[in-house]
Computed example of a mutant assay.
Amino acid sequence: MRAEIEQQQFFQALFQQLGQASLTQIESALAEREMVEPEPELSSQTIARLQQLLAGA
């Protein structure tokens, strides 16, 4: 239990250090990402849903 609490505290501290990205930074990162073929295990429905989510990002 103690390890979980320490891990949560570490995560919270790291999260605060990272801060927030601006919309411009997010759009830039998404534009620079490498486009690859989806994993063969993913269903066409899953791929379509992920593409919808990314298009709305």
Rank of each mutant, 00 (worst) to 15 (best):
A57L: 13
M35G: 06
G19S: 02
Q7K: 11
Q7N: 13
S43G: 04
F15R: 14
A21F: 08
S28P: 02
R49W: 09
E41L: 10
L18P: 01
L50V: 10
F15D: 14
A55C: 07
A31E: 04
L30Q: 05
Q51R: 13
I26F: 06
V36M: 08
I47G: 01
L30S: 06
P38T: 00
A13L: 06
A13Y: 04
A13R: 15
A13F: 05
M1S: 13
F11C: 03
Q12H: 06
R2T: 14
R33C: 11
A3R: 13
E32P: 02
V36R: 13
R33H: 12
A21R: 12
P38D: 00
Q52E: 09
L54K: 05
A3W: 07
L42V: 01
A31F: 02
L30T: 03
M35W: 04
E41V: 05
A31Q: 10
L14C: 11
I47A: 01
E32Y: 10
F15Y: 14
F15P: 00
I47T: 03
I5C: 03
E37G: 00
A29F: 09
A29C: 13
I26N: 03
M35N: 11
F11A: 12
F10H: 14
S28G: 12
E4D: 10
A29L: 12
A31D: 03
A3C: 03
L50S: 06
Q16D: 15
S44D: 14
L18V: 09
R49D: 05
M1K: 11
G56K: 13
E34L: 09
A55F: 10
Q51G: 01
S43I: 00
E39N: 13
F10E: 15
E32K: 14
A55I: 06
Q25S: 07
E37I: 04
S28V: 06
S44H: 03
E41W: 08
L18M: 11
L23P: 14
E41Q: 11
R2D: 10
E41S: 15
L30N: 03
Q51W: 00
L14I: 07
T46W: 01
A29D: 02
P38F: 01
R49G: 06
L54G: 02
Q20I: 02
R2Y: 11
A31L: 05
P38A: 03
I5Y: 07
P40N: 08
E32W: 09
A31W: 00
Q20M: 12
E39C: 08
S22K: 02
S44R: 07
L54D: 07
F10N: 12
Q17I: 02
P40I: 00
Q7C: 03
F15K: 14
P38M: 00
